[in-house]
């Protein structure tokens, strides 16, 4: 082999192992799933023995009450969670953007909830929500209030899992927002201060607009991740009571393992994937637009 063709092969040699794993472990399974979603297939059959039923899985899902219910629950959960976490996280970042001694210790403490296993987070909250030994109801009782059926009432259950998710993921938004704030150009802030802008005016007219690109990406990342939440809810409520907390991921896993309808579960996975794909594409396009705009600004500066 000549050195020239050798160097042309180099990038592929670097890529090959990762590409191999991703093809065997991700791309092929996803293709397989798309194929399986057109089948009437249960786990005791080989995939070759399953009947091809076209789009029937998809159409029957659209008419399925419990699927629509779980779609609503998922959308409700994700939107409430993302909006609340963005508000609290960004608000805290604006409040705490000062020179604090020991900020690194604080940040370490704030990322703990994200690093701990979701299963364990679910356990902790299930324990705290426990009707008799849980800390919330004990406090309520001590103060003379009625205990709240946190996880056993279908109205409260969704609120309870939302609270747990806010506890776990607000720090993520907070840390990213704080990083964005601290990388803002100091000159713009100084200039506005000299012009006599108040703290609020600075936040609304300077800080938030400058942070916006990062905030939008952060929000989208969090939104995508909120569709992946599964274990916390599985441990806390297992989708119940009724279907009140059964998000899509949970519904997929139950359809596959309890109802043993792999084809339907695959079709459901595809719906979820389409939803996430749309979000990812939005994020991607948004990033491209921002990059393009930055590039044109830079060019204008260089020319002028």
């Amino acid at each position: 082999m000549s050195t020239n063709s050798m160097s042309r092969m180099t990038p592929y040699m670097f890529l090959a192992p990762a590409a191999g794993f991703m093809i065997v472990g991700l791309l092929y399974p996803i293709g397989y799933m798309i194929y399986a979603s057109f089948l009437d297939w249960n786990p005791s059959q080989l995939i070759g023995e399953a009947d091809f039923i076209g789009l029937r899985n998809y159409t029957s899902l659209l008419g399925d009450e419990s699927f629509r219910e779980s779609l609503t629950v998922t959308l409700k959960f994700s939107s409430i969670v993302v909006v609340t976490e963005m508000l609290i996280g960004v608000g805290l970042a604006l409040l705490l953007d000062r020179n604090i001694r020991g900020i690194s210790v604080l940040r370490t403490i704030f990322i703990l909830p994200m690093m701990i296993a979701p299963i364990v987070v679910g356990l902790m909250w299930r324990y705290m929500y426990h009707p008799s030994v849980g800390v919330f109801n004990r406090i309520l009782k001590d103060w003379g209030f009625e205990p709240i059926p946190w996880l056993s009432d279908s109205g409260w259950a969704l609120a309870s899992i939302i609270i747990a998710d806010i506890w776990q993921w607000t720090p993520f938004i907070f840390i990213l927002a704080l990083a964005a704030l601290q990388s803002l150009p100091r000159s713009a802030l100084e200039a506005s201060r000299i012009d006599g802008a108040s703290g609020w005016q600075q936040i609304i007219h300077i800080k938030l607009p400058l942070m916006l690109p990062v905030l939008i990406v952060t929000g989208l990342l969090r939104l995508i991740d909120s569709f992946k939440v599964l274990e916390v809810i599985l441990v806390m409520t297992n989708g119940g009571p009724g279907l009140s907390t059964e998000i899509m991921s949970l519904r997929i896993s139950r359809t596959a393992s309890e109802f043993r309808e792999l084809g339907v579960a695959a079709a459901m996975s595809n719906y979820l994937l389409l939803l996430l794909l749309t979000l990812t594409i939005i994020m991607f396009v948004y990033n491209k637009i921002i990059d393009a705009r930055e590039a044109s600004v830079r060019q204008a500066v260089e020319e002028g």
Partner: peptide, 30 residues
């Protein structure tokens, strides 16, 4: 490196980031 397929590869990687484990459940099991 600049090579053929670079764009596709980095695009695929980006897209795959969003795949939730629940989606892999059925195909991986099968």
């Amino acid at each position: 490196f600049r090579f053929m397929g670079r764009g596709t590869m980095s695009m695929t990687t980006l897209m795959m980031r969003m795949v939730p484990p629940a989606v892999l459940l059925v195909p991986v099991f099968g």
